[in-house]
């Protein structure tokens, strides 16, 4: 699968990227790392990933807007929201825009791998 990682934190981006290469993960190719929604949208159009991990609180274009735009481009894309947001209502709104799953930050390696596996299952 082709993976696009969207998060304004460099640490989270590189951690997800590292875990994407884990042996427990299904074969995965990272096609882009974006630090905000508008960057993500650009990379999405270029590289057409199958799976996107999406932060919600980001500068320029936030996660919810970005999900809406991405799903409009490709309704079959799988999106995992990865957020530290404690407000469930906002997270639910993100899912209503078309994401399939949610993972709380901070997460363990096993949690992220498990969530991505379930997402593509």
């Amino acid at each position: 699968m082709k993976l696009l990682i969207v998060d304004d934190s460099n640490i989270i981006r590189s951690r997800i990227a590292r875990l994407a290469g884990d042996s427990r993960m299904p074969p995965c190719q990272i096609v882009g790392l974006a630090k905000n929604g508008s960057e993500a949208l650009g990379l999405f159009t270029q590289s057409k990933p199958d799976v996107v991990t999406m932060d919600l609180t980001m500068p320029e274009m936030d996660g919810i807007q970005c999900i809406e735009a991405i799903v409009a481009l490709d309704p079959n894309v799988l999106i995992l929201v990865v957020s530290a947001l404690s407000d469930k209502a906002t997270a639910i709104r993100a899912l209503m825009k078309g994401a399939q799953g949610f993972l709380y930050k901070p997460f363990t390696d096993e949690q992220l791998i498990g969530a991505l596996k379930e997402l593509v299952a």
Partner: peptide, 22 residues
């Protein structure tokens, strides 16, 4: 209400949204 709507829709993965149950 939104959460229940999500579960009735077939887009989300049940196991990946349980943590959001309000």
């Amino acid at each position: 209400r939104d959460y229940i709507d999500l579960l009735f829709g077939n887009r989300v993965k049940e196991g990946l949204v349980a943590s959001l149950n309000p």
